[in-house]
Amino acid sequence: MKPFLLHAHTKPISWIKFNREGDLIFVASKDALVTVWHTHNGELLGSYQHSGAVTCLDVDDSTTRLITACADQNAYLWDIQTGKLICQYSQSTPVRSIQFAEGGNLFLCVTDASYKNTPSIQIYSIPKELYESNKPCEKKQIARLKIEQDVKITHAVWGPLNETIICGCVDGSIRQYDSTSGQCLGKSEDHHKDIIKIALSKDKMLLISASLDNTAKLYETKTLELLKTYKSNEPVNTAAISPYKNHIVLAGGIAAQDVTLSLGKSTYFNSKFFHKVFENKLGEVRGHFGPIHILAFTPDGHGFASGGEDGYVRLHYFDKDVLEMNDGPDGPMD
């Protein structure tokens, strides 16, 4: 396979997101820029200029609105087609992660801790008029619900049918909250180091967590029951579940500042593929020359994109032999 190498960012890539049809790819970077590219030819469509490092982003299902989480203590709502800023959600600490709820009229954002503030997950609703017109909204937006917690949250996602919110924390725990009452429903503590990212399968029934303890773990979303463990040799920064095959991809690498403190080699920054059920390693795709921060499968599962410390986004489409690989008695799903 010949990957597209998308290069517009001068600093590490922090997030990648495909829109629902998979024809656009959104890239957030620490150089205060969000770019959007066509996936069929790798052409740059546009950019959204921020004033601080962008940590996370999400696109709604109709590909009209984009939300971004920024380290300048704001979350932003953008019009995708024109690149205009519509609304700004001020916080008192940097925003770490952000996600649209199913349906696109709610979103959550995760804020960091500071001297006065505890780490929190905040839920905002997006009024209809923000979808209908592209006029910038000056009104101050107030969070609908605030879930506070004593441990720093690294990433939070909506559970199935927006009923729950699941978050990964720096103490290695995964916690589940009710999205209407903010009540804690459950907790799993299988990882012994920071969880960096969590991701759900396409049907949201499975959850995978990527952790600095060199493993990725697969959970049942509803009960947070541990199902499988995938072992890597390096810290895992990101993991994803394929929507097409029984595959798991995970990636990471030892960060440059930790090389002298660790035993491993720092020269391998590959995306590693595992079998979802049998936990065995199927193969690797190499290419990056720095730790990989984010992986995302295309919505049809025929390819994947990876973004890393080197500022490159590599957009791969699998060769036939990978797509036709025998991956168990079930064969291809979907």
């Binding site: 396979m1 517009a8 740059l44 546009g46 950019s47 795709v285 190499r286 290419g287 791969h316 990978v322």
Partner: peptide
């Protein structure tokens, strides 16, 4: 829009999209 129009391009930002060399899914 934005950077893609080429108006705001300054010296240190270079936008490229290249087709990378052929790489393989290295099977274990």
């Amino acid at each position: 829009f934005g950077l893609a129009t080429g108006e705001k391009l300054n010296g240190d930002v270079q936008i490229t999209c290249e087709r990378g060399e052929d790489i393989f899914f290295e099977k274990t």
